[in-house]
Design a protein around this nucleic acid. Structure first.
Lengths: 342, 342
DNA sequence: CTGTTAGCGCCTTCAT
DNA sequence: ATGAAGGCGCTAACAG
């Protein structure tokens, strides 16, 4: 009956009619095209609000080939290191009215490819990826369609893709050096799962490399892998400490893992750092919740998100100067590590 | 020169040409329309992969008014309780090839309105919101355009909007009851910031209500607010413990806050729970990292995300039966609370 | 400065 | 089971 209240969304033509001008003019006003008379502009704006007009993004995108949409594919949001990065990335983008579509790959490059295809279909203008290991098809697709992409959590840029992050091999070396300098000789690592995770693998490699360089036999360095969960750290620790000559210092691939390792020590009556030093990675908020506080390598997650956002928003020309950005890594010394007891 | 390699994205017509059929047929194949000859169907699919064809979502959306896009506006991703929910929400949606645009409001209903407008412009088919406090304009806009929305972290559904979550007042009461049953008389709360946060406010209200009901004078119950940060919890604790008769039990609006409160106790040599009982809220992974382990009220974040996803994916008819869903709250008793010392 | 004219790529009747 | 034609809502030339 009452067609007046049933009325759905007004469209650009309706605004034009109400403002007494042509659709083109309305379009110009909406896109801040400067050459529009002040009077008309105001009438248009008023008409638009009166009608509760909201532009149709699809139509706009179809016509202009600008979607103002970018994509991000991350392993999971259920890990603070990624959630924090995405948070700052989204914040940056929203300042420019660009929206972000998030997908999660669960550390699987095949899922990543599927997700990327979907994002391309959605018309994203750029994509943020995590790490530097991807299916060649994924990159080929993006490159073929000229969709810029940026790697995060790594500083390994490719010929086409940019990288904003840090050097994971260096990170591993830094961890090793620190433990070595503390006088430790029996050193082990609880790495994250390295399958499809180049960052975890590089950290482990850098770590081992540095240890070997200073005289340790590679086979003498126990390395176990564990999920990024407290329980994983606990299990990893158990495996490591079962040895005849258990390690006196352990580098964990994430603070979460480290927290689990420390928990294990509590349960078994081992003192940290007296009996064993624990070194984490990420510097999450939880690093201050373990007892003792966790010594860890800080990952600049927030900063990566912001800079990645800048990259995605940049013009092609600007991007040239932003192709690679290695952020500094900082060792945050707290109380879970100590010189070897003698 | 080489126009062959410069070739950009194929479109539906190109697929049609290559498959030797009409665009309409290609469209049918792509949309799984059953009445297409088997031979043709295969030729089309092959042509599509050969050309690396990816449909243009904008065009499709414009024509069909289905974007396969939904939106979510949350306070921040930088808090595990939201990141976890969004993670499971996104996971659920991606099973059905629906993408999610995330925006953050930073606990500000005005920002939320802006974000909502942007989402509507993007053509999202449904929206997930957090809590039940929103600008009327936000809801009016969604309702006017028939965009279904669902509240999360609350069970207060409106006439139009669904709610999937829990009863925050009850949650507060549950916390109070537990502490009361432990014999505590001097009870306080460190609430989160309650401005624009109905959930935090309701929890506090329920908490106070229950305490008053059992004979405590409302003005005798110290309540401070703090940011959802470790530091906030520490500061809140400091304020509370400065009183002449400091509380013997404290309910914290979040595990993060509780963790900060416990930290404060460590620093000041107060024993938890001997000197003071600390009760958290959320049951984040960190609840097992404090010393002692944190007693807390569990919030079903993951489940909310999944169910909210189901709601957003449902047909209008199905939605009728899903308008309100109150998930049970569970008290997870660990070691940070104890009967009052006497 | 403003209006007119064409489509952007796809889906969807309507024929056949 | 398949093809032809029209238009979704908007913007980008091109006129004036």
């Amino acid at each position: 009956m009452n067609t007046e209240t049933d009325r759905l969304d007004a469209k650009l033509v309706d605004v034009a009619k109400r403002a007494g001008c042509s659709p083109a003019t309305v379009s110009r006003v909406l896109n801040n095209n400067p050459k529009v008379g002040l009077g008309v502009r105001e009438r248009v704006l008023k008409a638009a609000t009166d009608l509760g007009y909201v532009p149709n993004g699809s139509a706009r995108a179809l016509r202009s080939t600008r979607t103002r949409l970018v994509g991000a594919i991350i392993p999971t949001l259920d890990h603070a290191i990624y959630a924090t990065m995405v948070n700052s990335l989204q914040t940056r983008l929203s300042e420019r009215d660009v929206s972000i579509i998030i997908s999660t790959s669960f550390y699987d490059v095949d899922m990543e490819l599927e997700q990327a295809r979907l994002l391309v279909e959605r018309g994203v203008e750029a994509i943020a990826l995590v790490g530097s290991t991807h299916r060649p098809e994924t990159l080929a697709m993006l490159e073929q369609r000229n969709i810029p992409y940026v790697y995060t959590y790594t500083s390994d840029a490719t010929a086409v893709g940019a990288a904003i992050g840090f050097d994971n091999v260096k990170a591993g070396r830094m961890a090793a050096r620190y433990l070595l300098d503390l006088g430790h000789k029996r050193i082990a690592m609880i790495a994250g799962i390295t399958r499809d995770n180049d960052r975890a693998a590089s950290r482990r490699n850098g770590f081992l490399e540095e240890l070997v360089k200073s005289g340790l036999g590679k086979t003498d360095i126990p390395v176990v892998e564990s999920a990024y969960k407290i329980e994983g750290g606990r299990a990893g620790m158990q495996a490591l400490m079962a040895a005849e000559q258990p390690p006196s210092a352990i580098f964990c691939g994430s603070d979460i893992i480290a927290a689990g390792a420390i928990k294990y020590c509590h349960d078994k009556g081992l003192s940290v750092p007296r009996d064993v030093s624990i070194l984490g990675f990420d510097n999450l908020e939880i690093a201050e919740l373990t007892t003792p506080d966790l010594t860890t390598v800080e990952v600049p997650a927030r900063e990566m998100g912001t800079i990645a956002g800048d990259y995605l928003l940049a013009t092609p020309a600007q991007r040239e100067h932003m192709r690679q950005r290695e952020l500094p890594l900082r060792l945050v010394v707290r109380a879970s590590t100590a010189p070897i007891a003698r």
